[in-house]
């Protein structure tokens, strides 16, 4: 699966960017993958928020993507 991650605090990521992912991976793994891959400042706390038609929904980092209800192609904001 592919999720689309945006980092509103960084002007390189004003659009959501594709990140290959897996339904069984923990949301924390996805977060680490994106922060490392894109060289976001270390030592900061980040969180993930899923965006959908009717609003936003926090992503629980200790749960898998599937348990968080994330689907292929879902847009996510990485906030920090």
């Amino acid at each position: 699966m592919l999720v689309w991650v945006r980092v509103p605090s960084d002007d390189r990521f004003l659009s959501h960017q594709g990140v290959p992912a897996h339904p069984d991976m923990k949301a924390q793994e996805l977060l680490d993958k994106a922060t490392q891959m894109w060289g976001l400042p270390e030592g900061k706390t980040y969180q993930l928020v899923r965006l959908h038609a009717t609003g936003q929904q926090p992503v629980h980092l200790d749960k898998t993507l599937q348990e968080n209800g994330l689907r292929d192609g879902d847009p996510i904001d990485l906030l920090g």
């Binding site: 659009s15 960017q17 891959m37 894109w38």
Partner: peptide, 10 residues
């Protein structure tokens, strides 16, 4: 400096 390292959602 401002290049995005990924591929965007369109």
């Amino acid at each position: 400096a401002v290049a995005s390292p990924g591929l965007p959602a369109v």
